[in-house]
């Protein structure tokens, strides 16, 4: 178990999720791409203004687990998204 989890953590780039998985995930409601937010350790949907948690390396994409992002101004979200997608 431990060995495998470590291997997973080493292989990927996106906050505990393997890159191959992160590539196919989208926001369950808007079906728009998700980006990984390092500050909160969650997956953020800029289109749906929601963030979804990652628990122990498993992304939780249930609509009821999503938190609405209302505290951040809209522009800053777009800025981060463009920077993230470029690398």
């Amino acid at each position: 178990m431990m060995r495998r989890t470590t291997a997973l953590l080493l292989r990927h780039a996106v906050g505990g999720i393997p890159q191959a998985l992160a590539d196919v995930l989208v926001c369950p409601l808007s079906k728009k791409p998700l980006r990984y937010c390092e500050v909160s350790g969650s997956l953020v949907s800029d289109a749906g203004r929601m963030s979804f948690p990652i628990a122990d390396g498993i992304p939780c994409l249930l609509p009821k687990d999503g938190k609405l992002l209302e505290d951040h101004p809209r522009e800053s979200g777009y800025e981060t998204s463009s920077r993230d997608s470029s690398d």
Binding site: P18, A20, L21, D23, V24, L25, V26, C27, P28, L29, K31, P33, A55, I58, P59, C60, L61, L62, P63, D65
Partner: peptide, 15 residues
């Protein structure tokens, strides 16, 4: 290779 997601079939989070 295995991947796991928590998600709802009614709101499929797949590209």
């Amino acid at each position: 290779e295995m991947h796991f997601i928590v998600g709802d079939e009614e709101y499929l989070p797949i590209k």
